[in-house]
Write a protein that binds this DNA or RNA. Structure first.
Lengths: 240, 240
DNA sequence: GTCTATATGGAGATAGAC
DNA sequence: GTCTATCTCCATATAGAC
């Protein structure tokens, strides 16, 4: 539930760090730290305005540097975009796998309860959105914004499909009588609902005339868990 | 289930139509027909590449005309965008209201079954996506693509909120013991799932290794209906 | 690793002829 | 109602100095 170790290595000094005693502190700065700040800026801008609504200039301006530095570090806008996903997807994949392993261990020989499978997939996303700080919040908005666009979903799925397949397999073990197609539909409805509810905190507030606190995403999870679990169960064919 | 009467008025001649016997058939064409073809082109392009990924030039090129004609008819890109929504939202709103009225009449004094409320809201969207032809298909993709982006959702909601509120009220009558907030969460999960499943037909095919026919969106509805209905019921507080 | 300068093309919007 | 021409600005990406 804490920061991913694999993310921390990005803040370590590289072997090509400048020798001590160099006066131009701003000139030769640490490249990895710069790249990370650039990813933060791009992540926030992509989340707020989308891929096509964000320019390399916008990223450079948010960084307080020239555009050339952005292309120096990432080459093209597409690489910058996919690197934003790559940076955080490993952590989420890991959390989801850990949750699945724990659920399996708890269930022992029995089928894993659907609530535990749903929770294992949904909670890491919701938890990071609510408690992961500004960076993770931007990232979940980023994902929500691009998830329904095939051109971007293709890039996103590249990082999320392997874990999604493991979860689909676990759902299949819990619901052995359910057709594969129904499992895919249910899984898709779950993911679509999950990302949409994280997408726009202010939206539900408007519909509900301010009854929902935008920051209270954790409360949303307490509804998603029974909602999705019951949804899965509803597709179990009647056993004659 | 047929075309909305309010859409047909767009194809009527305006009083400023050209007098009979004019030779330049291509020059002074019918403005409303042109506007509609332009909306078709913009709708398809916005659906495929999003607002920021589509240029006025793209729309003009798809039309086979100059850019000036697009700005002549719609002024700005924002107006073109919102007009795309406006053109079809009235039909959908009407279908949903008719379905709600029918469900109420069927239930008489009793609470309307949750399945009928869910169906009344979801079916018109799914039905148009599957059977409404290329224009409606593009429109549902258009909605799915922009639904999770606050800047666009604001424009979309402007046309959909009134009917959404009526449905929320009906859900509240069916589930009188359910807190309002839970109703909003459930409604949001339903809408998020609905649009995401229509968003990318090819996506589930990939996850399912081709077991789902992309065109078979109606089959998706048969899963959505029990899934969402069970989801709503799962949030009913236990009655002591 | 970071900068300035630039190459090349596309963006939204308007003017005014027909 | 439609066209050509154009204004002004911004896009991505690169070259080369420091």
């Amino acid at each position: 539930m804490t920061a991913n170790p694999s993310l921390n290595k990005a803040s370590k000094r590289r072997s090509s760090a400048r020798p001590p005693g160099i006066s131009r502190a701003n000139a030769r700065r640490d490249g990895d730290a710069t790249r990370n700040r650039m990813l933060d800026a791009a992540e926030a801008l992509f989340a707020a305005h989308g891929f096509h609504g964000t320019s390399m200039r916008d990223v450079a301006e948010a960084m307080g540097c020239g555009i050339a530095l952005v292309t120096y570090h990432f080459g093209t806008k597409d690489v910058l975009f996919s690197t934003v996903i790559k940076r955080r997807s490993a952590y989420m994949a890991n959390e989801r796998i850990l949750a699945l392993d724990a659920a399996r261990a708890k269930a022992q020989e029995n089928p894993v309860p659907v609530e535990d499978i749903v929770s294992g997939y949904v909670w890491p996303f919701v938890e990071r959105s609510a408690f992961g700080g500004k960076g993770w919040k931007n990232y979940t908005l980023f994902i929500a914004r691009h998830a329904n666009s095939p051109e971007f979903a293709q890039v996103i799925d590249q990082y999320y499909d392997p874990v999604a397949r493991q979860y689909l397999n676990e759902f299949a073990r819990t619901f052995p009588s359910m057709p594969q197609t129904d499992l895919y539909y249910a899984f898709s409805l779950m993911v679509g609902g999950m990302v949409s509810i994280v997408a726009e905190p202010g939206r539900m507030e408007k519909l509900s005339s301010g009854q929902i606190k935008a920051s209270d995403i954790e409360a949303a999870f307490q509804r998603m868990l029974p909602f999705f679990s019951a949804g899965f169960k509803s597709l179990v064919p009647p056993s004659n």
